[in-house]
Design a protein around this nucleic acid. Sequence first.
DNA 1: AATGTAATTGCGGTTTTCCGTATAAAACTA
DNA 2: TAGTTTTATACGGAAAACCGCAATTACATT
Lengths: 222, 222
Amino acid sequence: MFQKVLIAEDQNTIHKGLENILKELNIKEVDTVQYCDDALLKIKASLNTESPIELLITDLSFKEGHRDRTLTSGQELIQAVMDVQPELKIIVFSVEHRIGKIKNLIEVSKVDAYVEKGREESREMIKAVRAVLKDEIYYSHNLAQLIRSADDISQTDIYDELLLQLLAKGLKRNQIASYFKEKDLPARSLRSIEKRINKLKILFDANTSEQLVAIAIDRGLI
Amino acid sequence: MFQKVLIAEDQNTIHKGLENILKELNIKEVDTVQYCDDALLKIKASLNTESPIELLITDLSFKEGHRDRTLTSGQELIQAVMDVQPELKIIVFSVEHRIGKIKNLIEVSKVDAYVEKGREESREMIKAVRAVLKDEIYYSHNLAQLIRSADDISQTDIYDELLLQLLAKGLKRNQIASYFKEKDLPARSLRSIEKRINKLKILFDANTSEQLVAIAIDRGLI
DNA sequence: AATGTAATTGCGGTTTTCCGTATAAAACTA
DNA sequence: TAGTTTTATACGGAAAACCGCAATTACATT
C-alpha cells in the first residue's frame, strides 16, 4: 500500500472523512492542504526526502480564499505536478460531472482515477486507491458508461471548442473568422466558420446558435 | 441550542465532519440521511414525537442512486418540508454559487441560511447555526457582497427570465413572439421581443445573443 | 505524378436579426 | 379631464446569419 498520500481539498469537513478511509486502507501518512500552491510545495519538498509522496488526491475546483494564489484549480495543479514528479499517482475527487472535462482529464492529463463526489464516494474512493496501486486506471461506476456514450462529443476537436468559446464570449461570425486568421488556424474563412457552426448544431441537435452555446455549457465543453 | 438536527447530504465523507461541528455546538441529536425522501420521512415522523426536529441542514444537488426517488433535489425537499413543518429552520449547504439560484432560495423559499461549501465552510456553518438559533438570516461571508451586487439582476422580471429560457431552448425571435401570444403575455409583438432582448444585452453587457444566454446560465438565471 | 476524394473558399441570394422611426395604446400626473 | 410620459406595435431598411453551389485547394492512395 502507499506510504505517503497528499490530499488537496478546500472543503475542510471532507478532510476527516477522507483521512479515515485512507487509514482503513493502512496508509500511514496522510497530509492535507487547502490550497493548490501548498500541495505543489509539499510535493516538491518531499521529492528530496527518502519517502516522497506517492499519491495525490485532489479536488478540481478551489474557492477563492484570503490568500493570493498562483495555482487556482486542480487542473492547473495536475499540470504543474506532472512537471516535477511525472510518476506521481493522481486521483481526482470532484463533483464535476461534465463528461467533456472528465474525458479530457483522463486522456490528456493522464490522471490515474476519477471519483465523482456523491452517494457512493467512500466506496468508490477505496476502489480507486486499490486500482491505482495496481497501476490501473479507474473511474467511478456511474461514469464508465457515460464515457463510452460520450464518444460523439469527442468528435468535436479543439477548434470546435475554441469556436464555441468565442461564440459564448460574444464574437460575431466574421470576428471569429478574423480571429482564426490572426492565429493562423485552419478553415478560417467566414464560410468555413459558418459550416463548422452548422455541423455543431446538427451534432448537438440545436435549432439556434443560442441553444448551441447553452448545450455546450451544459455538457461542459466550455 | 437546538436539540435535534437532521442532515441531508449524499456525500458520506462530509457526514462525520458536519456531525463533529454540531457536537461542538452542544447539539445532542444529529441524524443523517443520504436521500431527500428519507429526510422528509424522518421530519414527518418526528413531528408526532415530543421532540421534533428543529433544524434541517441540506445540500441542494443529490446524485442519482440505485433507489427510485420522488424528491430529487434539495430545492424540492425544502418545498415539501415547508408544507409539513413551516417553522422548521433550514440551512442550505451547497457548492451552488450562481447568485440567481441563491437569491431565489432566500427570497422565495425563505431558507434561514446559506453556507457555501468551500474553504471556510466549518467556520461559516458554526456562524450560521448560531445566527439561525437567534432567528436571524445568515449567508456566508463571501456571498454577502455578491447578493448586493446582484440587485441589477433582479430588475429582470419573470418575462425576461422566460425569454432567456426560450432562447436557450432554441426558439427563434418570431417563435418566441408566437409563444407570448399563445400564453397571452404582455409585449408579445416581434418588435417588443427584440427590444426586450436588446435591453437584456445592455443590462448584462453582452455583445451577441449567444453571449447573453451564456451569461444568463452563468449567473443562474436559467 | 496522376487521380480521386474531401476540405476550403468565395459568391449570390434568402432568411433572420437588428434597429430607427412613426403611430397607437396604455399608464401616469396634475 | 387633459396633457404628459411610457410602453407596445407596425413598418422599413441595414446588417448579420444562413445556405446552396461551384471553383479551388489540400490530401491521400496508388
